[in-house]
Design a protein around this nucleic acid. Structure first.
Lengths: 135, 135
DNA sequence: CTTTGTGCAAATTCTTTGCACCAAA
DNA sequence: TTTGGTGCAAAGAATTTGCACAAAG
């Protein structure tokens, strides 16, 4: 929990009990959780935690660059503490999201464009995971 | 409008007045529209059209492979009739989505994976477009 | 007729907002 | 104290569902 506290400071995020708890969860559960998954995981030990705070906290983390918001899941926003260049795979059957690390670095290069200023890239794969391969 | 009718048949989609109108709009407005944009564009000339039908129609088009659903915009689902391999750019300021055609074909290759069966790739870029470059 | 498609209204789900209270400096 | 953070309840927006009616074959 202390590490989370320190970790937040690296991104100039003022730690609070709630923020540290959310960051602690993200650092120790690399499952690209939704707001609801974070809330559900923390509320047993933090009964007064509100979902609004989880929303506020994640918005702040994204704004400060500590966390990346993923668009891969059309249903809910998902968050990733790993801000290094990598892709994601989502199983259309179970909805779980996994990291795809073995991609060529060139895939994360920003293409030249006269019309746009491109800030970030997201590489997403959809399909079925081993346990759901039927679908 | 007749072309849309024929176009649908290529994907074994039974044409109806509504389906042809939606496909006609998609073929002639390559703006990656949302459900609401499609509905708003068509309802003046088709006053009885319902948004439910637009949802049903797009679900069918996606299922039949005539249209691709984009996840780039976290707010709304967006649809693209161009099912060829290409990427997308969304301006975080105005929300418009543009095609990015000049990407290496290798970027659309499916990576090897023992854990997943990957069916599709989506390459998305975020940033600001020329007219919004302030942000 | 029989099946498939459409459209309305209500319900659900996810996210945002307004505001009062709490906590830290 | 003053500022920023939290949490509740309500509002808002996007999507889905249930069901009755219309259209097509």
């Amino acid at each position: 929990m202390l590490e989370s506290h320190q970790y937040l400071r690296q991104f100039s995020i003022k730690p609070s009990v709630q923020r540290s708890a959310v960051m602690h969860f993200l650092l120790n559960n690399r499952i690209h959780p939704t707001i609801d998954e974070i809330y559900m995981a923390l509320s047993p030990t933090m009964p007064t935690l509100s979902k609004t705070t989880v929303y506020n906290t994640l918005d702040l983390f994204v704004e400060k660059g500590a966390v990346r918001a993923l668009a891969i899941d059309e249903k809910n926003a998902r968050y990733d503490v790993d801000i290094s260049a990598h892709g994601h795979f989502m199983c259309k059957s179970c909805g779980k999201v996994h990291d795809i690390f073995d991609l060529k670095p060139s895939m994360f290069q920003i293409p030249e464009s006269e019309s746009f200023r491109i800030d970030s890239v997201e590489i997403s794969y959809l399909g079925a995971c081993k346990s759901c391969k039927g679908n």
